[in-house]
Design a binder for these strands. Structure first.
Lengths: 256, 256
DNA sequence: AACAAATAACCAAAACTTCATCATTTTTAT
DNA sequence: ATAAAAATGATGAAGTTTTGGTTATTTGTT
């Protein structure tokens, strides 16, 4: 294997496992301990990881300040994003909501041949290098808090484009209040996305359950896929069953 | 297969795989290692990829250098931008065209109380910190070449908003062909900006005179203010006089 | 302090690169 | 159609980088 590739994979591996022993890396990558040492040294010098006696760990100090593509957000969000990205196929026209979780999908869809309609400014900027992605911006007032465009008449884009899948974010969901968010300006574009797209995916980490924010942009039952990092409680499972919502959670990793 | 086509495909292939060994490229493209080497060399010189031991990898630093280019932008553009910014007053609602010269205006208007309607992605991103600026994005397809949004039905924003001043850019102007630009997709939004806004400012550096590009988005006489770094030749002065265009150039700096 | 584990330093073998040369094929221009 | 130019493939020598093993040195634990 290419040295560069191996080093990248080591970084990913460590990020995923938080801390890893050198012996484990030797095992996994099938190279000598000596080589692993040198690779790790490189990553440490680069600032991405830090060395601990006998192994290597993620460098949490740079995690916050540094905007490295892999390091920049919680593992949960990446896991959710990865699950969601599995539903994206070449040729799709998808709507991608504002929010950090949906933003994380970029990493997993950046090589696909798709059209992305979005109001997520970070996504637009970071997606610039990937020319296979056709990006369509919703336009509208810049909302600094969410780094997104809030459109007054967002419906238009859903009228002119046939978007088959919508990947939505939320600041809190509950059985009573449905899917909520804190920015009233964005509510309109979100709710029309849900109404006009054929398949709705909601990406929320487990901490968002039973929370709710200022405005509701749709009912929970309007969702087709609820993608999260942990199986929610019995009530939600029941509700999902009744309303034909597919619950998607990561495979239980046995060797954890 | 055509050489250029192969090189493009190699680039795509590497972009997709992050890092690839030369042997793999030999395998995939069915040419000799010698040729792959030469192709790769070309791509490296072009700055898109970088060589690593045993293969190639995507050049992640290209993004940074891309931003550098912006930082070390020509003095002329800044001078022109400064002149233009003098016409912006608190309370204005301005349209800001895509392009690097108009982008430079940010520095000189960032503290004003205005609303900016724009399709200039760089401007939107860089203006984020200045909360006094109300930013409205035109939306549309992302045009990577110009880092802008190209709208099919851009007229809408000019209908709903009363924009009093438009600051336009161009890749070439001439008396015969008028104000031109190279991206057909953007032509519509540009020409409707010119038609709907009350005062039109055109920012062009002196090198753009007597040049012209693919499409014309308005006649020269539709311009109200022509802002540039050097007094253009007699023909243009004459034309400006006849059509009531105000020529704006920097004060003669004696120490030039 | 004593011991084991981890690390660093060094070295030779293996893998890879670079550069040059030359024959062959493909493309372009006349 | 023919000649010239460009691109490609094959080969080989010389130089680098990487790698795994060995051996000293350091570090952490008891």
């Amino acid at each position: 294997m290419l040295k560069t590739k191996r080093i990248n994979q080591i970084q990913d591996y460590v990020l995923e496992h938080e801390t890893v022993s050198l012996d484990e890396l030797v095992e996994v990558f099938g190279v000598s301990k000596n080589t692993i040492r040198r690779d790790v040294q490189m990553l440490v010098e680069q600032g991405d990881l830090k060395k601990v006696y006998g192994g290597v760990a993620v460098n949490h100090s740079t995690l916050i300040s540094f905007n490295d593509r892999k390091v920049r957000s919680q593992l949960e969000k990446q896991k959710i994003a990865k699950l969601a990205a599995d539903y994206v196929e070449d040729g799709d026209i998808i709507f991608l909501d504002s929010g950090t979780t949906t933003f994380e999908m970029l990493e997993f869809i950046k090589t696909k041949q798709i059209t992305v309609v979005t109001n997520n400014i970070d996504f637009i900027v970071e997606a610039m290098p990937y020319e296979n992605l056709n990006i369509f911006s919703a336009g509208g007032m810049v909302e600094r808090k969410t780094k997104s465009f809030a459109s007054f008449k967002g419906e238009d884009i859903f009228k002119t484009y046939n978007i088959n899948k919508a990947f939505m974010a939320s600041t809190g969901i509950s059985l009573r209040n449905g899917v909520t968010n804190s920015s009233p300006l964005e509510t309109e574009i979100k709710s029309s996305a849900v109404k006009k797209c054929s398949e709705i995916f909601l990406l929320v980490d487990s901490k968002k359950f039973d929370k709710y924010a200022l405005t509701t942009y749709c009912e929970l039952k309007e969702i087709d896929y609820l993608i999260t990092d942990q199986l929610p409680n019995e009530n939600y499972q029941q509700y999902a069953m009744e309303h034909d919502i597919k619950l998607v959670v990561p495979e239980e990793a046995p060797a954890n």
